[in-house]
Amino acid sequence: RELEAFAERFKQRRIKLGVTQADVGSALANLKIPGVGSLSQSTICRFESLTLSHNNMIALKPILQAWLEEAEGAQREKMNKP
């Protein structure tokens, strides 16, 4: 249940930020998480549509959570600048 809720929230917030699935995939490489490079657009799509295996969903959740927090933080900074 929690994974499904996160996937839905992730998709809504990604769209609100105006970021494509492909952008998310390539931006993950910038997070410098050990062992994590970029991901394909189709992987992000399959995460959002819950068609990845349960284990893959569990593995990707903290990575996508980290990206989302960073992206939303950058958005807030941009909006707070005069």
Rank of each mutant, 00 (worst) to 15 (best):
K32N: 08
A22T: 08
E48R: 00
P34K: 08
L68V: 08
I33P: 07
R46A: 15
T43R: 02
N56L: 14
L68H: 03
A74N: 11
S26G: 10
G18A: 04
S42M: 10
G73W: 05
R13C: 03
G35C: 15
A66K: 14
R76P: 12
E77L: 09
M57K: 00
Q65L: 08
S40M: 03
K32Y: 04
K16T: 10
W67S: 01
L17I: 07
L17M: 08
L52D: 05
E4P: 03
E48K: 01
K61A: 08
P62V: 02
L3S: 03
S26A: 13
C45K: 14
M79N: 13
K11Y: 01
E8Y: 11
T20K: 15
A59L: 10
P82G: 11
N55C: 10
L52K: 00
R46H: 05
A7H: 01
Q41E: 14
A71N: 14
K61M: 07
P62T: 05
H54N: 08
K61N: 03
I44G: 00
L31N: 06
V19F: 15
N55P: 15
W67F: 13
L50F: 14
P62Q: 03
H54V: 14
I33E: 05
E69Q: 11
K61S: 06
G73F: 09
R46E: 14
N56G: 11
E72A: 04
L64C: 02
Q41Y: 05
P62E: 03
R14W: 00
L31E: 11
F47I: 00
V24Q: 01
A74C: 13
A5Q: 14
K78V: 11
S53I: 05
S53D: 06
S42N: 13
N30F: 14
R13S: 13
E77P: 08
I44Q: 00
E70V: 05
I33L: 13
E72Y: 06
I63A: 08
I15Q: 11
N30A: 13
P34Y: 03
R9H: 12
V36L: 12
R14T: 00
I44T: 01
I58N: 13
I44L: 06
S42Q: 07
M57P: 02
F47A: 00
M57A: 06
M57R: 01
S42W: 05
M57L: 10
A5G: 10
F10T: 01
S42A: 13
W67D: 03
L50A: 14
S40H: 06
A74H: 11
L28P: 01
L64Q: 02
R1F: 13
A59C: 09
G37P: 11
L31F: 11
L39N: 04
L39V: 12
F47N: 00
A59W: 05
A66D: 13
G25F: 07
K61E: 11
P62C: 03
L52G: 02
H54P: 14
E77C: 08
K32C: 07
E77G: 10
A59N: 04
I63V: 12
K16I: 07
Q65H: 09
K78D: 06
L3T: 04
A59F: 12
R14K: 00
S38A: 05
V24G: 00
K11E: 02
L31Y: 14
A27I: 04
I33D: 04
K78L: 11
I33N: 05
A7Y: 01
S38D: 06
I15N: 07
P34A: 12
A22D: 07
L3Q: 04
K11N: 03
R9D: 07
R46W: 03
L50D: 03
T51A: 11
E69K: 10
T43M: 14
R14L: 01
K11H: 15
S53Q: 11
L68F: 02
R9M: 12
E8F: 05
G73C: 11
G37L: 07
E4T: 10
